[in-house]
C-alpha cells in the first residue's frame, strides 16, 4: 500500500520537475500519469499490484476532489452576478455542444472504421 502510494507521488514529483526544467506548458500530474502508464507497460512485474487499489481508491472519489475548488465560487460571486449571461451560457451551451460534437464524431468514425474493416475482409 505504502509503496504504491509512494510510486504515484514519485511519478507526480518527477512530472513536476520535468515541467519546471523543460518549461513545457503541460502540468506535472499529466506527465506523472504518462510516466506511471509507461512504467506499467514496460515493467509490469516490478509494479506493485496494490497500485490498482490505491489508484482505484482515489479514482472512486474523484468527484469529491473537485469540491474544494468548486467552493471557490464564493470568492467570485460579484463577478458571476455581473456577468452571469456569458458565463452560464458558455458553461451550459458550450459543454453540451462539445459533448454532442465529440460523441457524434466518435460514433461516425467508429462506424466508418468498422465498415472498412468488413470491406477488407470481403
Amino acid at each position: 500500500m505504502l509503496g504504491s502510494l509512494t510510486l504515484i507521488l514519485v511519478c507526480q514529483l518527477i512530472g513536476e520537475i520535468i515541467t519546471r526544467v523543460t518549461k513545457l506548458p503541460v502540468p506535472g500530474p499529466v506527465i506523472g500519469m504518462i510516466l506511471l502508464f509507461c512504467s506499467m507497460v514496460f515493467y509490469p512485474r516490478q509494479i506493485p499490484s496494490e497500485v490498482e487499489t490505491v489508484g482505484g481508491f482515489l479514482l472512486r472519489y474523484l468527484a469529491l476532489l473537485f469540491v474544494p475548488a468548486g467552493v471557490g465560487v464564493i470568492t467570485h460571486l460579484d463577478l458571476l452576478m455581473k456577468s452571469w449571461a456569458p458565463i452560464s451560457g458558455t458553461i451550459i451551451i458550450g459543454t453540451l455542444a462539445t459533448i454532442a460534437v465529440t460523441g457524434l464524431v466518435m460514433k461516425f468514425l467508429n462506424r466508418r472504421f468498422a465498415t472498412t474493416r468488413e470491406e477488407r475482409r470481403q
Binding site: L5, I8, L9, C11, Q12, G15, G28, P29, V30, G32, M33, I34, L35, L36, F37, M40, V41, V51, E52, V54, G55, G56, L58, L59, L62, L64, L65, F66, V67, P68, A69, V71, G72, I74
Partner: peptide, 24 residues
C-alpha cells in the same frame, strides 16, 4: 475554508497520475 479543504484538493494531483491505471 481552504486551509482544511486543501488536503482533499491536494489529492487531485495523485488522482490525475492514477488515471494511468484504467488506461493500462
Amino acid at each position: 475554508y481552504f486551509r482544511g479543504a486543501q488536503f482533499i484538493h491536494f489529492l487531485l494531483g495523485p488522482a490525475t497520475v492514477s488515471l494511468a491505471i484504467p488506461l493500462y
